[in-house]
Amino acid sequence: MKRAPVYEYLLITGIGVAALLIPWLLPNFITQFTFLWVMVVFALTWDLLGGQMGYNSFGNVLFFGIGAYACAVVQRDSGLDYFTALALGLLCAALLSTAVSALLGAGVLGMRGHYFAICTLGLGVAAGEIAGGWEYLGAGSGMVTPQYPGGIGERDLFYYFLSLTITGTGFFTLRRLYQSRFGIAINAIRDDEDKAEAMGLHTTRYKTVAWCVAAFFLALTGGAVGNLIGFIDPRDVAFSGATFGVWMILMAILGGKGTIWGPVLGAAVFHLTQELFWNFLFGWQRVALGALIVLIVVFFPQGILGWVREAWPERFGQCVDTDRQGGEETR
């Protein structure tokens, strides 16, 4: 496969070092940064289907919610100590969510284009309604996650590094996947699924695996966020299509669909502007956010990285047709 350029390794190292130092450099902003890592997972997992595979899902928040609830239920009912229960909860959340995505995928991923989008939208909404009426999950009043056994500062630090770990693992998993046969195959499905089928690709298998990977990391994030917030509301936290569900799409589009760095960049820019709006435009923050969305769609339909890539394609390892390139010289 194409070797990654040196500056990409420098970038990864830089972000990694900064991420490890942030709790001590900017201790007052630790929760914001925890949520930044969560946002990065949202954008990356959405882009796996929406950007790389061309399947615009409006219901990925389903797996986030399943993760949040599954983890909380295990923590409530297992009777183990806090950290063992949390670890077991996260594991169960990831497994359950992956299983659900595999089962749903077999049917839902058979639909294409708008049909897939509408169907996933329905799934997300339906899940919220089910959770809101299910006594076992606390119904409309939601679930409260267990009290963290240590102090507040320690708790913040713990969840910061938990989110960072999930995000890091997710990022490197996806990066590795995109460089392998899997990445090329889902790109092919995005470009022309009929052609991919005509060429004998196991399209259903690739699509299902892609959804399972997204569901796995979203569920882990869901488990972490449920504990971070301390309270799981069925419609406002777990299956919150209007906030998390829409944000994950926006962040991926803002940064640039179909790239590994686009969603990361999009999540950072989006989270930062959102926090700024909340601080300086209080009362109007949702209006400002809406205006921002309109601006993004009108002026950066390809996203920030997509726009940069159009301006300097060579920087992204793409070639443009020039005469210099012809024939033997390039061998």
Partner: peptide
Amino acid sequence: RIYGRMDCVH
């Protein structure tokens, strides 16, 4: 029909 947004080698 080809995969338009991938290069020829891919």
